[in-house]
Simulated scan of single mutants.
Amino acid sequence: MKGEISLRRFKALCKKEVYSLKSKRIVGSLRDILVDNKGHMRYIVVNTGNIFNGNWIYGIHNVKSFTKNAIEIKDEARRELRADGDAQSIINILGRMVKSEDKIVGMVEDVHLDLRHRSIIGFEISRGFLMDVCNGMQIILFEDILFKDGYIVCHSRNGLEVYKGGIKNIINREG
C-alpha cells in the first residue's frame, strides 16, 4: 500500500489522528490496539475526544493504512468498546513484568509492530534506566512469550536481544 510504514513502535502510533476516507474527516485519535494471543491485530480503539461518545472500536479490516501522519480507515462502521475474551490491549501490556526461569528480566517499555502484516514483532524490555544506558535496551520476540496473570513469561533468555547499543556495547565496538 502506498504510504504504508512497515515497522513501528506502539508509542509512536499512539495518539495519531484517525481519518475516515468515506466522510473525509478526523474521527479521533488512536488510543489502543487490541491483539489476539497469536499477536495479530484485531481492532483499533479510537478516542473520539467527546465525553458522550467516548472510545470507539474499529476492526483491523477497516484500516486502509497506517501512514506517517495518520491512520486511515475505510468507513466509520464501528461498535461500542466491549471486552473481547481473546483480545489483549497493548496499553495493558505496557509496564508488565517479564520473567524468565522465575527471575525478573525487566518491564515492557514498548511494543514493536509490523503494520504490513498487522502483527506484533516483539516487546522492548527495560531493566531500569542505569542498566539500559550501560547495556542497551533489550527486545524479546513475540513467539518466545506466554501471557500469564499480570506478567509475561519469556521461555528462554536466548529470546532477549540487545539493541540500540548502550555504553558497554559502544565501547566494545570501538575497541
Results as ranks from 00 to 15, higher is better:
C154I: 01
N47F: 10
S156R: 10
I167M: 12
R127W: 03
L94M: 12
I5Q: 05
E72H: 11
N92F: 00
K99F: 15
A70L: 01
E124Y: 01
N169S: 14
F10C: 08
A87R: 08
G39N: 10
D144C: 03
V63P: 02
D84L: 11
K74T: 04
I139P: 00
N92S: 14
I90G: 05
G54R: 08
I120W: 00
F52D: 11
Y151T: 05
G49Y: 07
D132R: 02
G122T: 08
E174H: 05
G136H: 09
L81K: 10
N53I: 13
I60M: 15
L130D: 00
D149Y: 03
A77L: 10
I152Q: 02
K68Q: 08
D110E: 09
F52E: 12
K164Q: 10
I91T: 13
E80L: 08
S65N: 14
E101C: 02
L7P: 01
F52G: 04
V153R: 12
I167K: 02
G28H: 10
N62F: 06
E72D: 11
E109Q: 12
C134R: 08
Q88P: 00
S126Y: 03
D75C: 12
L130Y: 02
N37E: 15
I167G: 05
V153G: 03
C154M: 11
K168I: 05
I73H: 02
R25C: 09
R79K: 14
K22E: 09
D32M: 05
I71M: 05
R173A: 05
L13W: 09
I145G: 07
R157L: 08
I5N: 06
Y163Q: 01
V46H: 02
L146I: 10
A12W: 07
E4L: 14
N169L: 09
F52C: 04
N69Y: 08
A87N: 12
V162P: 05
V27D: 11
V133H: 00
A83C: 02
I33D: 02
G106D: 06
L130V: 08
I120P: 04
V133R: 00
E143S: 14
R116Y: 15
H40E: 14
F142D: 02
V35M: 04
Y58W: 06
K24W: 00
R127Y: 02
E109F: 11
S65R: 13
I125G: 01
K68G: 06
N169R: 15
I44P: 03
R8H: 02
R25E: 15
C134F: 06
I140P: 03
I152T: 00
K68A: 08
E109I: 01
V27N: 08
S119H: 03
S65I: 07
S156N: 12
G39S: 11
S29W: 03
Y19N: 09
K164D: 06
I91W: 06
Y19E: 09
E4M: 13
V18D: 06
G85D: 11
R96H: 07
V153T: 12
V108T: 05
F52Y: 11
D102E: 13
G150C: 12
E143K: 13
Y151V: 07
L30T: 09
K38M: 10
I171E: 06
R82C: 03
L81G: 01
M107H: 07
K24I: 02
N53T: 12
K74W: 04
F142T: 06
D114I: 07
R8F: 00
N135D: 13
N92E: 15
G159P: 01
E101V: 00
D144G: 09
L141D: 10
K15T: 15
G175N: 09
K99S: 08
L81I: 12
L130M: 13
